[in-house]
């Protein structure tokens, strides 16, 4: 896939495969094109060129209505959890079922309880999002992401902004749900420690390009200095601090 915004290349001919039933982590720094890549994969944006395949279907050529149908097979956990502030926990999780199905109220109630049990939060149905901690909000977001029994779950930076314990809980949930439900998981992250814990497969993006992929062990032993700089979180190395090639002196003095 290739995607540019105002001449800036956000996805530079990236090819990726997400293995069925496995956890794939897309790692990269801020502005490396992780979110852009995910938005194209789920069909929120069309690539300038390239295709997206889900099973035997090609998603970029689907109509809006067909894509809407397809998205029911995908669950998404957004970075800010994206819960409705005016709805309680129960209605937030039930929302996709009310939108897409004709299930009876009592059946929906049971399904919400089943998902809350999976994320370890049964009993908070009546609380409002404002009454929940950051870690709990993520878990509620996750219960909503899996309420339709999706085949693939996408996680956008699931542990960012969480304390280490809450982050550990989310990591464990991602792995457990992957094993229990057999779903394919795609995680966009810049959290190195968490990624190495949960991933079956890691891809590293750098300025829109895929620079490495492999098992966590393969990535760890990569000799690519860009990979080593990223996983060690070092400010010094081939990954530059600034994005522009333009000389600072010229940039300031020449209008």
């Amino acid at each position: 896939m290739r995607k540019t915004y105002n001449g800036l290349v956000a996805s530079d001919d990236v090819t990726c495969r997400f293995r069925k039933g496995k956890v794939t982590v897309i790692l990269g720094g801020s502005g490396s094109g992780k979110s852009t890549l995910m938005r194209q994969v789920v069909g929120l944006e069309k690539p300038d060129s390239g295709t997206v395949h889900f099973g035997d279907r090609e998603l970029t050529s689907l109509s809006r209505a067909e894509l809407y149908e397809y998205r029911k097979k995908m669950g998404m956990l957004f970075q800010a959890s994206a819960l409705f502030n005016s709805l309680d926990v129960f209605e937030n999780i039930a929302f996709p079922l009310r939108e897409h199905t004709k299930l009876a109220d009592q059946v929906i109630r049971t399904m919400v309880k089943m998902k809350l049990e999976l994320v370890g939060l049964r009993g908070v149905e009546g609380l409002m999002p404002s009454q929940l901690s950051g870690g709990m909000l993520k878990r509620i977001g996750l219960a909503r992401a899996i309420i339709m029994d999706p085949e693939v779950v996408f996680y956008d930076e699931p542990t960012s902004g969480l304390d280490p314990i809450s982050a550990g809980v989310i990591d464990k949930l991602i792995v457990d749900l992957n094993e229990i439900l057999g779903v394919t998981s795609v995680v966009v992250s810049h959290d190195i420690e968490s990624s190495f814990k949960i991933a079956d497969w890691i891809m590293i993006l750098f300025f829109g390009k895929k620079i490495a992929e492999g098992t966590p062990e393969e990535i760890q032993s990569s000799e690519d200095p860009r990979v080593q700089q990223f996983i060690k979180g070092s400010p010094e190395g081939p990954i530059p601090f600034t994005r522009t090639d333009k000389d600072f002196y010229e940039d300031i003095l020449i209008p």
Binding site: T101, L103, A104, Q106, V107, I108, T110, M111, M114, K115, D149
Partner: peptide
């Protein structure tokens, strides 16, 4: 059977 089927059996 998906989780809606299980929830229906719970009914």
């Amino acid at each position: 059977m998906d989780s809606s089927g299980i929830a229906t059996l719970v009914e």
